[in-house]
Design a protein around this nucleic acid. Structure first.
Length: 262
DNA sequence: ATGGTCGCATCGCGA
């Protein structure tokens, strides 16, 4: 069977219910992973999504901040949720699809403005979160798994609009890039997006602060689709739906897609 | 070099 998965930092699922529904109607991924839902689970607007065929949901939520959800047309059993670095934040949810594939949906801490844990506690929390992700995948090797989400790190030079200008900017510092590589190595995760689209600039986020985001194109690839080696070869058709960044009242992130033929 | 924009626990904070 074949299924398509998308990941999207939605920046409030309640405010943007209609563009989530638009994505579901127009693009119809079988599985849609959202981050920054900014909603308690019980206030996630499920009715419209169910009517579009997304009859299965697993989610973790909190009021105002964070929050992750997986909507699926494929039956799903919840496999769990972790609170890495003990932040008490809703940043991870995992679901197991009935085809045996486990989907991990992450919202890694952004890390604040200063890339120094001595003066910026949030940066330390980001590094701690990544270290605990690494340790968890090292301890329990993932199989038949997909990891997606807003990882808040753009690892490659061509994942940012200007590598040199961003070397000291949180999301592209060498220490973060190394920490993300350690997570990836620990689970033997394959970067599906960059396997499919190996060359050229590729972004999934553009700041709200640039009114001419499309022309200026000062983007970063913060949103990722990874898979374990046993299913990574089945992946194809990766893309960023850049158009969605220009929709009415947009999120500052665009959805990232991949299809798996299993 | 600075400030710029969003969303919500809304006039401060996180992104």
């Amino acid at each position: 069977m074949s299924f398509t998965l998308a990941t999207w930092n939605i920046n409030s699922v309640r405010l943007r219910e209609d563009i989530v529904a638009k994505l579901m109607a127009d693009e119809a991924p079988d599985v849609l992973c959202l981050q920054e839902c900014k909603s308690p689970v019980e206030k996630i607007p499920q009715e419209q999504f169910q009517s579009l065929g997304y009859t299965h949901m697993v989610a973790r939520g909190q009021k105002g901040y964070n929050g992750v959800a997986i909507f699926s047309k494929i039956p799903m059993v919840e496999a769990g949720a972790e609170d890495y670095a003990n932040l008490g934040h809703a940043r991870h949810i995992a679901g197991k699809l009935e085809n045996g594939v486990t989907v991990h949906n992450f919202y890694v801490p952004a890390g604040g403005d200063v890339a120094d844990r001595e003066v910026n506690e949030k940066f330390g929390q980001k590094l701690d979160y990544l270290a605990e992700m690494r340790d968890a995948f090292h301890k329990d090797a993932p199989k038949k798994s997909i990891l997606v989400g807003d990882l808040n790190i753009a690892p490659r030079e061509d994942d940012v609009w200007d590598h040199k200008k961003l070397l000291k900017v949180v999301s592209h510092t060498p220490v973060e890039v190394e920490a993300l590589a350690e997570v990836q190595d620990a689970g033997a995760w394959v970067d599906v997006t960059r396997t499919d689209i190996p060359d050229g600039k590729l972004y999934s986020w553009w700041s709200y602060r640039a009114k001419d985001w499309d022309v200026a194109d000062k983007g970063r690839r913060l949103d990722h689709v990874w898979a374990t080696p046993d299913i990574a070869g089945a992946a194809h058709g990766s893309r960023v739906l850049r158009d969605a960044r220009g929709w009415e009242k947009p999120s500052d992130h665009a959805p990232v897609f991949a299809t798996f033929d299993l």
